[in-house]
Design a protein around this nucleic acid. Sequence first.
RNA 1: GAGGAUGUAGCUCAGUCGGUAGAGCAACGGACUUUUAAUCCGUAGGUCCAGGGUUCGAGUCCCUGCAUCCUCACCA
Length: 522
Amino acid sequence: MSDEVPQSEAAENPSHLEAARREKLRRVQELGHDPWGQRFDDQLPIGSVLKLQEQVYYENEAGEKTPLPEDREAYIAWRNENRRVELHGPKVRAAGRIVLERTKGKLIFLDIMDWTGKVQIFVGRKQVGEENWALAECMQLGDIVGVDGEFKLTNTGEPTIFAEKLHFLSKSLETPPDKYHGIHDPEIRQRRRYLDLIHTDGVMERFLRRSKIVQSIRQTLASESFVEVEGPTLHSIAGGAAARPFTTHHNALDMDLFLRIALELHLKRLLVGGIERVYELGRVYRNEGISPKHNPEFTMLEAYQAYGDYRSMMDLTEKIIVNALEATGQPLKVQYGEHEIDFTPPFERKTYDELFLEHTGVDPKDEAAVAKLAAEIGFDIKGRHPDVIKSDVFEEKVEDALEGPIFVMDYPASICPLTKRSQTEPEIAERFELFVKGMELANAYTELNDPDLQEQLFKTQLEGMSAEDSMAKMDNDFVTALRNAMPPAGGLGIGIDRLVMLLTNATSIREVILFPLLRHEA
RNA sequence: GAGGAUGUAGCUCAGUCGGUAGAGCAACGGACUUUUAAUCCGUAGGUCCAGGGUUCGAGUCCCUGCAUCCUCACCA
């Protein structure tokens, strides 16, 4: 490196904390080591290292290999009586980030952490020699280092790798957060998720668990012969749900486009095309408010099964959730905040009307009574469709009260423009929503496959409902697809982030999304 | 979009009635060969979120803006 190499602004004008770190970096280079490290083979995950503890032994007076007292107290007592006895343990190589450092004279204790665990490293000046000692003196909190050594116990019974050779793997130029308190500022936790993953207990576990849940869902669907596909995220008509879309533009085609708000309409086209069990697990985008339960981009599962109906989707929903619990090593009754959620199947199943009556005391079929109740709550009822009014009351009085898990079945048909009507009661749509802790977790229909009715419903804008609030957006291309015969089918949507919230005991959706949307930094 | 809370050293936080900016951790120098949030001695580190106002004097009081969190609204 010559002096003419341009340096970053930070390098030219470092804080005293950074200057100290750059000085250590320089000394690592002086010692002939690469501060940014090299490929490091054959290292054992720290979690696996810790499992080797039972292999630690000593030789008794007869020269026989003897295991150590298992109990830590007993070991310490034994050790105090037998300080001179040499311990033997397996040779290991490990790598990780330094999260704690204690120096004691010519000793350095480092705690290094990888994504499987944390282990202590003992560096004794006499034991490792001057070269390694000099390198160890350059190691700071936040640096990533490797070690070769013998895995055994200290006098206090701490499982420890006794360093024989040290490796510098990557230098941190930034000072890590408080080693005891970590990061409390939720803004830093979200903007700099890497620090959160390192320093906040449970964060790594939660995101690894999210991955396991998603993996399990794919397995469950595969075992039911569903095929995963990828539909377009750029739509010319943002249909399939009631939400405001994000808008964007394609320059070469000079074409306004929307980011998808649902997966539905393209998956149903594939049902027409003969992919009889099809699903997509992907991101959708809704230009709506942000809350502990809402992020502008979130992950959705939608699955469609030819020749099924909404009842088939209830069974599938239960399977997906129960398997996800099993895959993450959880019981069917999970703790969520102060409460317990019992996911033991079958989940409770009740109709919309039953629940309406139960929670309001008003007969849902009595339009006048429902309207009166809505007016009492404070809803504007003028010029609005009776079912829209009923739906408002339902959301206000019933949904939040549903502890669940409960399948709410049979919605008013007029608010479900993509759903097949009940054969016996045409004013009822074969639709369910799964509620848990007042949160809508899943939504499913017997899919409407009558192209004429679909076209008619797309045209019908319910009174008092804005275009954005309506799921009914004319999509001629989709209607044309239906004209080619879509098999009768069940369809299911599950909000993956919310499922992960429930299965990882998170109260905010931002705790289960790695990089939630934030405004520009102040 | 509305209301409330918060914003001080790299991190976690104090800061009284408006009167020269504080601690712990981290950093730097030193002591210590089985420590573990190690300990002890010493040193350094600040655009008090930003801008304006009141005042002899503002981290503190007032106004505006920005960001985060919470509640509500919209939504899944």
